[in-house]
Amino acid sequence: MRIDLNADLGEGFGPWTMGEDQALMQVVSSANVACGFHAGDPLIMDATVRQAKAAAIDLGAHVGYPDLQGFGRRAMNIELRELATYVVYQLGALAGMAAVAGHPMTHMSFHGALGNRVAADAQMAEVLVRAVAQFDPRLIISSSSSQAIEAAAGKHGLRVATTFLADRAYDEHCLLVPRGIPGAVIKDPAQVRQRVAQLLQDGTVTTLDGKRVKVDACSILLHGDTPGAVTLARDLRQFIEGQGAVITPISQLLRS
């Protein structure tokens, strides 16, 4: 079995840092880099791209709402056409940094509140996924389980790498439970490890209300902004490899 490990990186701003990016890059196989809207800035983006190149891991754009103060985790009422331009703007920003560094983008993902909304809203998914396809049809969309995104990607000829969020609770539709609900964020490392084991063994996740649902994932997301993230990431990689899985970047799992 081959599986990708990805992490959201480059999420500082100016002198403020978030997570331990360099340490995580020694563990993961793909990086999702903030593009300046929910976090990140040109200097951080440039440095993160170059670090990803040095670590020989895949590079993706992590696009979100224009919400630096709320870290992109607050829902925003933005007209879809305008929101599509925000997506293209962020993709273009990271693509520019990637071109200068000589480390092309392989994928993109939607961050936070935007990601949750796109995953559940077929109309929004259609508009934003079409924007991604028009920007670069070779990009892979890295996403949590979402029929809306998968349908839009299929229509517009994009590949989807479904990623499993081991530290987030799921509902019966295999969508992420909003962070404001008790139990939505799983902080116990033993429980996170058990959820990864369940995914590897039978391809399922137990929902917040105790049901088992199928998750057809080829990637696992490791959040870098939680306490002890690097230690947990190292432990999970060791555990996953101990189960016989080979850690493989997204682009090698979904070759066009």
Rank of each mutant, 00 (worst) to 15 (best):
A113D: 01
A95R: 11
S144F: 14
G96P: 05
V100E: 09
A169G: 03
A101Y: 06
H103D: 07
N77G: 05
V160A: 06
L158K: 01
V129E: 08
R168D: 12
A120C: 13
A101Q: 04
G115L: 03
A161D: 08
Y86K: 11
H103L: 01
K155M: 08
A151T: 12
F164Y: 11
G157C: 02
I141E: 03
F164N: 08
L139I: 00
L94C: 04
F135R: 02
A151E: 10
T85K: 00
R159F: 09
I141T: 05
G154V: 00
V87S: 07
G72S: 10
H107Y: 15
A153T: 01
L91Y: 05
N116C: 05
F71N: 09
D171G: 00
S143Y: 10
Y89V: 00
S143Q: 05
R138Y: 12
Y86E: 15
A148E: 11
A122D: 13
M105V: 01
Q134Y: 11
A133F: 00
S109Q: 11
D167H: 12
V100H: 03
R81C: 09
K155I: 08
V127R: 13
L114A: 10
F135H: 14
A95S: 13
F71T: 08
L83E: 08
L139A: 02
I149P: 09
H103P: 12
I78N: 02
A131E: 02
A75F: 11
K155Y: 04
